[in-house]
């Protein structure tokens, strides 16, 4: 099951981080989640980053963007074979995902 993000439904509560971390470690922490909140607090710009095995899904308020591993943004030709960094384990696309179950707004849903 893959996770679908509807960024404008996000209220930045972080329940997804907490849920995913619990799924991984059976403790409450925000540290081991594959999904992570992102916030520029003073600008009130916030969204979610979902690390997948080979891409990063960025749920930005202006839309969802998928950053493929190894994609270069142009100015970084020298490093074209490197990948974006988010120091988390990738999402294992578990079924009945905690991130979805505890998301209070329906911002996250499971899709086939």
């Amino acid at each position: 099951m893959a996770i679908q993000i509807e960024p404008l439904k996000c209220i930045n509560c972080g329940a997804c981080e907490l849920g995913c971390s619990f799924y991984r470690d059976e403790v409450f922490t925000t540290m081991s989640a594959s999904i992570m909140m992102y916030r520029e607090e003073k600008r009130n710009y916030f969204g979610l980053m979902l690390k997948k095995e080979e891409e990063m899904v960025l749920g930005r308020p202006e839309g969802v963007e998928v950053q493929k591993d190894g994609e270069s943004s142009g100015e970084e030709e020298a490093n074209a074979s490197a990948k974006p960094i988010l120091m988390r384990e990738p999402c294992d696309e578990c079924k009945n995902a905690m991130c979805v179950r505890f998301c209070p707004t329906g911002c996250l849903t499971e899709v086939d």
Binding site: I11, C13, G14, A15, L18, N44, F46, F102, P104
Partner: peptide, 8 residues
Amino acid sequence: VEADFNNP
């Protein structure tokens, strides 16, 4: 609108 930590 937005929420506190884990606040629905």
